[in-house]
Computed example of a mutant assay.
Amino acid sequence: MHRLASKVAIVFGAGPNIGGTIAHFLAREGASVVVSDIHMEAAEETVAFIRGKGFVAHPVQGNATVEADVRRIVAVALETYGRVDVAVNMAGRVHWSHLLDMDMDDWNEAVLSFPTAGLLTTRYTAQAMIDAGHGGSIIHLLSTAAHFGEAGGTAYTSSKAALLSFARSAAMDLAHHGIRVNTVTPCAMEHQLWTLMRGEVSDPDWQRPDNMAFYSRDDYLKMLPLQRFPRASDLAWATVFLASDEAEIITGIDIPVDAGLRHKYPTWTPGAHTGVNIRDFAEKTYVTRYGEPQEKLVPGSFPEGVRRDPSTQEK
């Protein structure tokens, strides 16, 4: 519970799924956490949860793709807690489209957003660390899209791949300052079963769309060697490790939090042999907020108030 004692962290993106869970786990390990989000109510909700657990957090509104906002968020962290040791960034916009139908405004927004947020959050948190004369840890959340091609996802894959390469180069630029830059890559997340993919797991009459680029959650689950989707808490634990002194010699790496998906042989389908299926999986799944189980996810019945986490665009 004290792996991050005396450290100050900024989390860019604060909803109750990924960003809020990471903020909660950082605070639980002893960090004072500045929680930022494009929506102030999301930041305040996350901070209220963290403070309710007896930990230290402060909310601030801002857009991580806007330079003035990032400078202000870092200034608030310095004013409130006196230093910055850790930054976690997951900000960006997603647009899905076949490349032949891609709208150029959507393309420009999507392709620029993730690496722009990466540049700004890294630049201004690193400068605060350098000015204070100490090192630190900067962590960017990616997606399997950074590593693979995906039909309908040219803008998203381009943006996430750019952020991956940016983080590697940033790690080299900042190494002599003792600042580490690393990334964490999830695949499709468990919470998306009750946010983005409700019909497939809850509607007994659900039918696969007639779309050659479509893959179901059942298809996805069958591809995972560990036979479950990553949870927000899995990403939070990887982030805590990279933020801690346990990882003080680690920089420029990517940690795949994907149940073994990236490293399996592409044509092997583990679930074809084990019999795992999405409905049985969903019946054993609990809705979580900030990394804590709330209630069991029962196909056909979703809890009131459960909504998509606007602060994360991870797949």
Rank of each mutant, 00 (worst) to 15 (best):
A151K: 15
S169F: 11
L226K: 07
R228E: 13
T144C: 09
P204I: 08
A155Y: 07
N211A: 12
T144G: 11
G153K: 04
A175L: 12
S159R: 12
I179C: 02
P186Q: 04
L224Y: 01
V181R: 06
A238D: 05
P204Y: 02
L196H: 05
S169K: 11
L174Y: 15
D219Y: 12
N182G: 08
V184T: 08
S143Q: 12
D203I: 02
L196C: 00
R231V: 07
T239Y: 05
S165N: 15
S165L: 13
S169P: 00
L193E: 01
A175G: 01
E200C: 00
F148Q: 14
R198S: 10
E200W: 04
A170C: 13
V181H: 04
M223L: 15
R217M: 15
P225A: 07
P225D: 03
K160I: 09
W194A: 08
M223K: 13
A162L: 12
V184L: 05
D210E: 14
V181M: 05
G149T: 10
T144M: 14
K160C: 08
L196N: 05
A167P: 03
V201C: 09
G178E: 09
G149W: 08
L193I: 05
D210K: 10
Y220S: 07
E190W: 00
G178N: 10
A167F: 04
S165R: 13
S143P: 11
Q207T: 13
A232N: 05
L163A: 12
Y220T: 11
Y220W: 13
K222S: 11
S233K: 04
T195M: 07
L164D: 12
N211K: 08
E150I: 02
F166T: 00
R217I: 00
E200H: 01
L224G: 02
A161S: 14
K222E: 03
T195G: 11
S202I: 00
F229D: 01
M223Y: 03
G149F: 11
P230S: 01
A162W: 12
A162D: 05
H176N: 09
R231A: 09
D234G: 06
R198A: 10
D203A: 01
A146G: 15
K160L: 13
H147V: 07
M212D: 14
C187N: 07
R168H: 13
A155N: 08
L193V: 02
D219F: 13
F166W: 15
M197I: 00
A232K: 06
L221A: 02
T195S: 09
P204G: 04
T239G: 04
A213M: 10
W206H: 02
V201W: 03
D210H: 08
A161Q: 08
D203M: 03
M189L: 13
A161Y: 03
F214Q: 07
N182Y: 04
G149Y: 12
P186W: 10
L163I: 03
L224C: 01
P186K: 10
M197L: 09
R208G: 11
M223E: 09
L221M: 07
T183S: 15
T195E: 09
K160D: 10
L226F: 06
P186D: 04
Y215N: 04
L235I: 14
A170D: 09
R231L: 11
A236G: 05
